[in-house]
Amino acid sequence: MNERSRLAPEPMPRRDFLGLSAMTSALVALLFAGIGMMRLPKAAVLPSPSRRFRVQLPESLADGEAYVPPGRAVAFYRRGDTVYAMSTICTHLGCVVRPTASGFDCPCHGSRFGPDGAVLKGPAPKALPWLQVRAIGRNAYVVDEGRTVPSGTVVQA
């Protein structure tokens, strides 16, 4: 066996090497198990009810008056011979806004929106999103809460 220089590093004893690899493999396993477990709570399929539904606008709905189907967070407007819809979920922190004469008021922190959904008063950071609407018959429409469209997108009544 060659004589080692005093300056050369000590060779690692076999026992230390085994211990070190056991330790490393345990840590790596723990890390991956952790990542795997973190994946579980992130739902792959959202259990929300279908966000698409049919709406029958009342015959008497006036021009520029909001119609909110019972139990839904969507407001419909008729303007001339066009129809459009927007979400009534406040863009601030998710309360349901109430239609007023001049647009919408949020009961939670006082945001106000115009009849086109634009922010009139904070703290809401952005306009109420418009939703995809399809006409399917006389005064009957299908709206999809899950699909937003650019503000100003209307359909022919």
Partner: peptide, 19 residues
């Protein structure tokens, strides 16, 4: 992502309650 992890859904419902 944070909201999804907290609620397990888009809104406060059965999933959120069990979490």
């Amino acid at each position: 992502l944070q909201k999804l992890l907290l609620l397990g859904s888009e809104d406060v419902g059965a999933e959120a309650l069990i979490r």
